[in-house]
Amino acid sequence: MARKEYSFYPGCSSERRASASNYMVSVESMCKKLDIKLNEIPDWNCCGASIGYAQGGELPRHVMNARNLAISEQVNKGQDVVATCAACWLGAKETKDRLAHDSGLLAEANEALREAGMNLTYKGEQEVRHMVEVLIEDLGYDELKKPVVRPLEGMKIAGYVGCQTNRPFGIAGESFENPKYLDHLVEIVGAEPVTGYDQKVTCCGGALAFSEPEKSQAQIKKIVESAYDYGAEMIVTPCPVCQMNVEIYQGQINKRYGTKFNMPVTYYSQLMTVAYGGSAKEAGLNGQIVRASRLEEIAAKNR
């Protein structure tokens, strides 16, 4: 039996050939090394993301999340729900919160839920947690350090926490303005965190990267520029939207502002996979548009 077991909500971007498929690859490798078993919620659906509000309204949005949680309660009994995506975590947790405090809304959600298959009723039995929360709280930094066989020595990494893994819920014991957990994770894998990184919780624009690209790219520029200013050679993040926005628009930002950005943006799970002895492929590094060359070199070394 695995050391820890969770009901897993991977989310749309984690699917094969989707924008965070590299995240998923590295999470699987990382969990294997840590002996964590993830039981996928069968037939899970989209959380509605934040941007779903305009057309989705209130109840339809909560019902989408309630369906996932109800399936989880039925199939993965007694397990906490774990999401890797910040938006999935936020969406599901917000629904759990709202339905716990509003019995009318809960009754309405269940009325709608009965229309779906599987004979579902949402009870609110399971906790909804983010993967980093689980790593830090259930295993702890000491346990996370044990499997490190290939420390990322000499690398200076900016921990970009962003918004939705940080606000409004965040990780227990961390501040909204200067959360430190990502810096601790960077330390654990043997790299040097950029402690003064002042754009650590700046918004990348989220979904508005699609609809308001200029405004969003002005945000992203600050985030990447600050990482350079502090001497970072890589940015690491826990959020698929942050990862995508901060990585893929660097070319357009260079054109717009005349900058020369070429900063790799990776997930914590990719750093951990490499540090735990995994290959570049196991860490999903072939999924980077801005190649994480230093990390690839370390991954190619014998452990």
């Binding site: 094969r16 050939r17 989707a18 924008s19 965070a20 498929s21 590299n22 037939d43 899970w44 659906n45 309204g57 109840l59 339809p60 019902v63 989408m64 369906r67 309405e108 959600a109 009325e111 709608a112 839920l113 009965r114 229309e115 779906a116 298959g117 599987m118 072939n286 999924g287 980077q288 548009i289």
Partner: peptide, 29 residues
């Protein structure tokens, strides 16, 4: 880099119980 499916317009699977989801959303509205 394998992060966008070039055949996504034709090969997207989605949820198995999509009929149930449609009914559920209709009710919610």
């Amino acid at each position: 880099t394998g992060r966008l499916n070039p055949f996504g317009l034709f090969a997207h699977k989605g949820c198995k119980d999509i009929k149930g989801i449609h009914k559920m959303l209709k009710k919610a509205y």
